[in-house]
């Protein structure tokens, strides 16, 4: 057993006046290195909040979370940014690309704070674009791409820093079936590369994943069931 993510008694709530909304309740989750976990549940079930906390984009209200052995909830902001840059690649539902930049420039963005030389940046960007099948559009502006192509740019950007963990938040929500299947193929390659993948989704297409994944059902901020996708 080689856990890469360990979560114990994790809670996240939001206060609004005297009311308290519990977005996550007593979450216990362990993810092994190289494992693929699908967080499944309806909107508002807490999937995105959980992914945000794993990515270090949000803080838990209480409880423990360790990613790569690091207690990320206690890291000061400057360390958290470095941690994210090194270990986490994130693919968002709405891609979050910079529309005025080219594909190549979008993919290079996460490499800027890593202070690498231009040759290293170019090599990493080329590799990431190849892996995500978007190298042929390298010089095109993101604004001119289709939804599927934007998704692949987002994947390339997530891969540019060669992170161990890929987090995908509703990655197929804005894709047609054909593009969604292409996304599954890319995920399959990432899985073969040994990446740990967490996907928050309610899209049934992930039942067609060509490799074994663990499905974790979420409801009202709590984990209600965890099983293998092949069960």
């Amino acid at each position: 057993m080689n856990p890469i993510i360990e979560i114990r008694n994790l809670n996240r709530h939001f206060d609004s006046g005297e009311e308290r909304f519990h977005a996550l309740k007593e979450i216990d989750l362990t993810v092994e290195r190289g494992e693929c976990v699908i967080l499944r549940g309806i909107s508002g079930s807490g999937k995105t909040t959980l992914l945000s906390i794993i990515a270090g984009l949000d803080h838990p209200s209480s409880g423990e979370i360790r990613v790569e052995g690091e207690a990320i909830a206690k890291l000061p902001d400057r360390h958290l940014s470095r941690f994210r840059g090194r270990h986490i690649g994130m693919i968002f539902q709405h891609y979050n690309l910079m529309e005025e930049l080219s594909v190549r420039e979008n993919v290079a963005v996460p490499l800027i704070p890593m202070a690498q030389n231009m040759r290293q940046v170019t090599r990493r960007v080329e590799e990431a674009m190849e892996r995500a099948n978007i190298a042929h559009k390298a010089d095109q502006k993101a604004a001119r791409l289709s939804g599927g192509e934007k998704q692949r740019v987002a994947i390339a950007r997530a891969l540019a820093t060669d992170p161990e963990i890929i987090l995908c938040d509703e990655p197929t929500a804005n894709l047609d079936r054909a593009n969604a299947r292409r996304f599954l193929e890319i995920l399959s390659r990432l899985h073969e590369m040994g990446k740990t993948i967490l996907i928050a989704t309610h899209d049934p297409i992930f039942e067609e994943l060509p490799f074994e994944a663990r499905v974790v059902e979420m409801e009202n901020g709590a984990i209600v069931d965890g099983r293998s996708s092949e069960e």
Partner: peptide, 17 residues
């Protein structure tokens, strides 16, 4: 109490920052 992962300690850490 830095070792704690309680709600109060997390709030203190954010306030301390």
């Amino acid at each position: 109490d830095f070792g704690s992962t309680s709600e109060e300690q997390y709030a203190l850490e954010r306030r301390a920052y």
